[in-house]
Amino acid sequence: MKARVYVTLRQGVLDPQGRAVLHALSSLGFDQVRDARIGKYVELEIADGPRDEAEKAVREMARRLLANPVIEDFRVEIPGEGEAR
């Protein structure tokens, strides 16, 4: 099964990459963009098993390695049956 981990910068953490993207979008004429923040997306292929255990393990992976809690938050998604994989 797949697990998706979204790693995003915590609120208040300056994101110069996001700011550069914001400026680039603005120079392309997309004036409606108010802010841009760059994060990371990690896709994991997990051995099949109970979903709750997988989610617990992935959260632990995110906490210990995939995200740095000093600067980043994370969100874990494990798509269920019938959802897009």
Binding site: V13, L14, P16, Q17, A20, N68, V70, I71
Partner: peptide
């Protein structure tokens, strides 16, 4: 403590 992040000027 803390973290080292991308330079402000990139």
């Amino acid at each position: 403590p803390g973290a080292l992040m991308r330079n402000v000027g990139l």
